[in-house]
C-alpha cells in the first residue's frame, strides 16, 4: 500500500541510525580526549553522568514542562491559525496579497529581532509562545497555501460534475493532497520551534525554563550542564516530531478509511 505520505518517509533504517549515532559519539569522545579541556568540550560520558543527575531533580522536570507547554502552545497556535489563513487566502486571493508583506517580513526577520520585540510587548513567561508563533506561522501558511493551490483541478471538476458535498471534497480531495505537505511542514516547524523557543528563553530568562538553566550554565561555565540541556532539547524535539508524525498518520488512515465499512 503506497500512500502519498510514505513518499516523505526517512530512508535511513533504524540499524543504520544506531550505527551512525554510535560513530558520532565515538568521534565526540575522541575529540574530547584530544582537546582535554572540559570547559571547551566535555566528553559524552561526562554529559551522560550530568544528565543522569539532572533527571532525578525536580527542577529538571519543571523546566521541561515549563518550556514544553509554551513551545507546544505557540506551535499549535501557529499551525491552527496558519491553516485557517491559508484556506481563506486560497479562497480569496486578496487575503494572500494583503498578507504578503507580513509573511515576507516574518520569514526574513532574524529570530533575535522577534525575541527582543516580544520582550518589549510581553512578559518573559509568555515570550516563547509568541516567538515560536512568529517563526512557525509563515512556514505553515506558505506551505499549506502552496498545497491548496496545487490540488488537482481535474478532480475538482469531477467533484463539480458529480455534485460532491463540501465535506466529501475536503475528506477525499483536499486532505489526501495536503497531508504530505502538513507532515513535512510539521517536521521542519517542530525543530524550529525548539530553536526559537529556547533562544527566547535564554534571552528573556523566564524563571524555571530550560533557557534560563542554559544561561546559568553559560554564567558558571558549566559545559556539561549546557550539553545535558541541549541533549534534552534534542530528545524532546525528536519525541514531539515522532508523536506528531504518528498522530498525523493515524488521522490520515482514519480519514482514508481504506478498509471501508464492510457490510
Amino acid at each position: 500500500m503506497k500512500h502519498s505520505m510514505q513518499k516523505y518517509k526517512n530512508n535511513i533504517s533504524l540499524k543504520h541510525k544506531i550505527i551512525s549515532i554510535a560513530i558520532a559519539l565515538i568521534v565526540w569522545q575522541l575529540f574530547a580526549i584530544l582537546i582535554n579541556n572540559k570547559l571547551l568540550l566535555v566528553s559524552p560520558i561526562k554529559v551522560t553522568e550530568r544528565l543522569s543527575q539532572l533527571i532525578f531533580t525536580r527542577e529538571y522536570w519543571l523546566a521541561i514542562s515549563f518550556s514544553l507547554l509554551r513551545i507546544v502552545l505557540g506551535f499549535t497556535l501557529a499551525i491552527a491559525i496558519g491553516l485557517i489563513f491559508a484556506v481563506i487566502a486560497n479562497k480569496y486571493k486578496i487575503v494572500d496579497i494583503l498578507l504578503w508583506p507580513y509573511i515576507t517580513a516574518m520569514k526574513a526577520t532574524p529570530v533575535t529581532s522577534f525575541i527582543i520585540l516580544c520582550l518589549i510587548w510581553l512578559s518573559t513567561k509568555t515570550l516563547s509562545i509568541l516567538t515560536v508563533f512568529l517563526i512557525v506561522f509563515p512556514i505553515v501558511y506558505s506551505n499549506i497555501f502552496e498545497a491548496l493551490n496545487t490540488v488537482d483541478i481535474k478532480l475538482l471538476e469531477m467533484a463539480n460534475v458529480f455534485k460532491m458535498k463540501l465535506s466529501k471534497r475536503i475528506r477525499c480531495i483536499y486532505i489526501p493532497h495536503i497531508m504530505p505537505f502538513i507532515n513535512s511542514t510539521v517536521t521542519v516547524a517542530i525543530g524550529m520551534s525548539w530553536k526559537a523557543g529556547v533562544a527566547a528563553e535564554v534571552i528573556g530568562m523566564p524563571r524555571g525554563s530550560i533557557g534560563s538553566f542554559m544561561y546559568e550554565a553559560k554564567l558558571y561555565l558549566s559545559t556539561a550542564d549546557l550539553f545535558a540541556w541541549t541533549a534534552t532539547i534534542i530528545a524532546l524535539s525528536m519525541l514531539l516530531e515522532r508523536l506528531l508524525s504518528f498522530f498525523l498518520k493515524l488521522t490520515y488512515k482514519k480519514v482514508i478509511n481504506l478498509k471501508g465499512d464492510k457490510l
Partner: peptide, 8 residues
C-alpha cells in the same frame, strides 16, 4: 479516470 486514488 479522475479517481480518488487513495481510496478503495
Amino acid at each position: 479516470n479522475r479517481l480518488l486514488n487513495e481510496f478503495s
